[in-house]
Amino acid sequence: MIADRTWFREGELAGMRYNLIAADKILSGAQGSRLGASTGSSLDFSDYREYHPGDDLRRLDWNIYARSDRLTVKLFHEEVSPHLDIIIDSSASMALDPGTSKAKASTWLAALLWTAARNGECTATGWSIADRIRSLGESARRPSEWEPLSFEAGSDPLRTISATGCIWRRNGIRILISDLLWQGEPSRAIKHLSENAAQTIVIQLLSEADINPPPAGRWRLVDSERNTSLDIFVDAATQAKYRNALRKLQLQWRDACRKHGTLFTTMTAEELLASGHPQALEQAGILSPG
């Protein structure tokens, strides 16, 4: 299934109301107009530290050397332009039949984040991750101008991340939009995802169908990605067990994210599209109305 470009345009419009809030530590990146978290070559003084071989001798504070006979280097704030990598899970589970709430919500949210990042003077790049990681276009290109985003079957994003490694910009902000219904250990994915990242945010985007199991009865459940089926009799106990399994999965991801300093939040696609406000991201301090 190919994502509709109108979803991107709607997300861009919605994103006009928001700014991406970058934490102090996340201010790293290419030289730009904002002070980064690390030291750089701006005129704003940051700190002193002892000289280490290899430091720029031009940063030596000769006055301190004269007074204390110690080689001390002056550190200045680095002027950076922060970068946002928006990683969209394009596995087939994001485009369930019937309805395309997760696909629409994910593209809508990605476009919103891209616009909010631009509003916050950040560059942003869209990525799709399925059986491979693919850039959706240069950072200058608007989401509505990205390469076609298709939600494909038979993909395993977790394995793809593990196999590919970190290809995103160092010290950038990385936001993963996915339902996270992946087989495997979340920590491994989080580790690869947050490697050399200033900040990583994992947004679990679920549909109502993912949150609420089907009503009681005989069901043939078809896996959207593996095309396998399970004939199952659903009753109240099964529904409870399913919800419990979902909570358990979310807890695993939350713990893994906490372990790697990653922010984790959950959103419901239908609610997101209905409200038009990514309230969870605002509460998490990622977006601010602008």
């Binding site: 589970s93 994001m94 369930l96 039949d97 997760k102 339902d179 219904l181 992946w182 087989q183 549909s207 169908a209 993912d210 089907p214 009681a216 009865g217 005989r218 069901w219 043939r220 459940l221 078809v222 896996d223 959207s224 990605e225 593996r226 396998t228 399970l230 199952i232 009799f233 659903v234 009753d235 109240a236 106990a237 099964t238 067990k241 399913y242 399994a245 979902l246 999965l249």
Partner: peptide, 21 residues
């Protein structure tokens, strides 16, 4: 009734139930 789900991983554990599931 047929229903497409994101993944069967959450359903597999249901088989451990003695009755439903």
């Amino acid at each position: 009734r047929r229903r497409q789900v994101s993944s069967l991983m959450l359903w597999v554990e249901g088989r451990e139930l003695s009755n439903g599931g």
